[in-house]
Design a protein around this nucleic acid. Structure first.
Length: 122
DNA sequence: CTTCTGACGAAAT
DNA sequence: CATTTCGCCAGAA
């Protein structure tokens, strides 16, 4: 549904330069949406969306044709990688949505906080 | 309606 | 770590 996609895009716009989020992290904030749906939304992502800030839970680039390009974009934004080539989550993990986004969410502030806490802030 | 297919994820091996 | 297995679930065929 287009509505879900818009929710997903809105969240990704919350991820700032030098930060990265996983498909699962984004999905967990949109009721009824799973990781695979976030991935599906990426295929039709608006050209101005910073799609490359979304990676897999393991820290690797998802398996798609633009993976190499994605790695370059992230590097250019200052994202660092570990020996195995995966993004260093402890240094670049997205902190969560802004206050403004939370207010617009159907979910309670507490629920959002619990979800974000589950990402293991480190 | 049934099957197949993923820019995924968590757990098991 | 790397691989495999299975759960998920919206679209396409």
């Amino acid at each position: 549904m287009s509505t879900d996609y818009d929710q997903i895009y809105a969240l990704i716009r919350e991820v700032r330069k030098g930060e990265v989020a996983s498909y699962g992290m984004i999905a967990s904030l949109v009721p009824g949406v799973g990781p695979r749906q976030v991935a599906r939304a990426m295929r039709a992502a608006p050209s101005d969306l910073k799609w490359y800030r979304i990676i897999t839970a393991s820290g690797a680039m998802a398996d798609h044709s633009g993976a190499e390009e994605q790695r370059r974009f992230l590097k250019k934004e200052g994202v660092t990688f570990k020996k195995n080539g995966a993004v260093d989550w402890s240094k670049h993990r997205w902190r969560g949505p802004s206050q403004r986004w939370i207010k617009a969410s159907v979910r309670s502030f507490e629920d959002i906080m619990e979800i974000v806490a589950g990402w293991g802030g480190r």
